[in-house]
Amino acid sequence: MKILFTWMVMAVSLWFLAACQDVTPGYLETDNAIYKPDTLVIRSELDDDPGEINPTYELYLGFGYSPDMIVNVLGIPERINEGEDYYRAKWGAPWTSVAIQGVLGTNPIYMEVRNITSQDGDPVKLKEYLSVGGNGAFEVPLEHDIPAGSYKITLNVHNEGYSHDLVDCFTIIVK
């Protein structure tokens, strides 16, 4: 009886050991993956009109306040009526999206652009300029020559054992 019990324990132990070899490490959940907002509008022609110097700002400069104090402490802007892209052009800031939300899994999690589609643009040209960060945020440099159009992006999210495609999860509109 003891021998039979010993053989049964050994058989069950071997069965458990054999079953453990096919387990995929970690996990990856993308069922709730979403961008909010899911669209980025990029302008080819920047509205970088510098506007005019704020008279209140100039008044405080005349009183001896530093520019940093006027803007950051008093909250008085240096310029008024400037173009929508004035500061973006001044600092060379790229066009960026929000980060993706709802992706859970074992780190490191990698993101890459799988596919770009467009009815009225040039997906190959967008792919030259488009990059995606580790948090899923898209970035396009300020200076580009991407043709106007609407582009749908499919993102691949993967880690050591898993990979998921998020089909048409984000839209970039180039005006």
Rank of each mutant, 00 (worst) to 15 (best):
K2P: 02
K2D: 13
K2G: 14
I3Q: 12
I3D: 11
L4P: 01
L4C: 05
F5N: 06
T6S: 12
T6D: 07
W7R: 05
W7S: 06
M8Q: 14
M8D: 06
M8S: 15
M8P: 02
V9R: 07
M10Q: 12
M10T: 14
M10L: 15
M10E: 08
A11F: 11
A11S: 11
A11Y: 06
A11L: 14
A11E: 06
V12E: 08
V12I: 15
V12S: 13
L14R: 07
L14V: 14
L14N: 13
L14A: 07
L14D: 05
W15M: 15
W15L: 15
F16G: 14
F16K: 10
L17V: 12
L17I: 08
L17R: 03
L17C: 10
A19Y: 14
A19F: 13
A19D: 10
A19H: 14
A19T: 15
C20I: 05
C20L: 06
C20A: 13
C20F: 06
C20Q: 12
Q21T: 13
Q21G: 10
Q21A: 10
D22K: 09
D22W: 09
D22M: 09
D22E: 10
D22S: 12
V23T: 05
V23L: 04
V23P: 01
V23F: 03
V23C: 03
V23Q: 05
T24Y: 05
T24Q: 07
P25L: 01
P25S: 02
P25D: 01
G26R: 03
Y27M: 00
Y27W: 05
Y27V: 02
Y27S: 00
L28Y: 00
L28W: 03
L28R: 00
L28T: 01
E29V: 10
E29P: 00
E29K: 07
E29F: 09
E29L: 09
T30A: 02
T30M: 03
D31G: 09
D31A: 12
D31Y: 07
N32Y: 13
N32H: 13
A33N: 01
I34Q: 11
I34A: 05
I34V: 09
Y35I: 02
Y35L: 03
Y35Q: 01
K36P: 00
K36Q: 10
K36M: 08
K36N: 10
K36H: 09
P37Q: 04
P37W: 04
P37H: 00
P37L: 02
P37C: 00
D38W: 07
T39Q: 07
T39Y: 04
T39N: 05
T39C: 00
T39W: 04
L40I: 03
L40Y: 00
L40R: 02
L40C: 04
V41W: 04
V41G: 00
V41I: 09
V41Y: 08
I42G: 01
R43D: 08
R43H: 13
S44P: 05
S44E: 07
S44W: 05
S44L: 08
E45H: 10
E45S: 11
E45I: 12
E45V: 13
L46A: 13
L46Y: 03
L46Q: 04
L46I: 04
L46S: 06
L46K: 13
D47W: 08
D47Q: 12
D47R: 11
